[in-house]
Amino acid sequence: MLKKYFPSLGVILAIVAIFIGLPHFYDNQSFLFNLMLYLALAEGLNIIYGFTGYLPFGYVGFFGAGAYGGAIAITLLHISPLLGVLVGGVVAVLTGVILIPLLRLSGAYFAIANLAASQALYLVVANPSLEKITQGPYGIDLSSVYNANAGYFAMLGVLVFAMALVAYLRNSNFGLSLLAIKEDRVTASLAGVNVIRARSIAWMLSAFVAGMSGAVFGWYTAVFYPSTVFSLDVSVFTIVFVLFGGIASVAGPLIGALILYSMYNFIGISTPQYFQLFYGLLIVLLVLFLPDGVVSLLKKGKVYVP
């Protein structure tokens, strides 16, 4: 039974080897950190979009909630940053629980309502009247616990967790039940699947990954503002990576994020608009010509995608 997990496990080990090995040859740690961040977010979004079909345009809301949840716990409760990462994940899950009713909405309506929810959350966190708790628009300073190397490996840990979750969904009956819900809710529930519970679990797992990613990001960056951790760009990047790579596999989002984020970093960083233009055109072309992403080409060639 465990044998079917081997290909996914291979992919995970390869990624771990890359991010442990690369810093010895390539000293731009912050690029590698951000790359891992987007790999983790792409897998996190894959959990909800890839397996259940809900496209969370407000995915950044969980990221921001995690960044703030973790940072506030670290500064106000004086807990260790690693514990703060966990708190960040939990805060994002709680945010997800509040938003569960949105799952009643279908397709584009869910996407736009989720976008609105993330914006609302941003405006609450950035609101000057909450300055005592969130520092309002003035941002968070975690430089007292700053530790780049620890943050780097914490990010790797979150990434491994995210990949392992997707590997589980890719190979388990629970993952199969989510795919069934995505295709036809009625058929899934007549197979005995508790649709509402299953999709809520996927939603919270997805939130947990984004929340922990946000908390590690806050810790690694040390100083951040609500406009950074609630930036719509985070959702946009993640969605583009997942669409480009392909959904419902471990490898698809990894391929998408590795290729596109590296390109973004090496070409686009000085004038991000070139990349916005490129991404925009890429999305249009993907929808028209390759709606299932790059891995669908492999699948057509009968290659097994872990």
């Binding site: 009956n173 069934a180 295709e183 899934a188």
Partner: peptide, 21 residues
């Protein structure tokens, strides 16, 4: 009929066997 068209015949029945009883 409303089968889960992306899944195999076996997977369709598997899902029902696992979750249905």
């Amino acid at each position: 009929p409303k089968p889960l068209s992306g899944l195999t015949v076996w997977e369709n029945v598997l899902l029902a066997a696992v979750y249905g009883s």
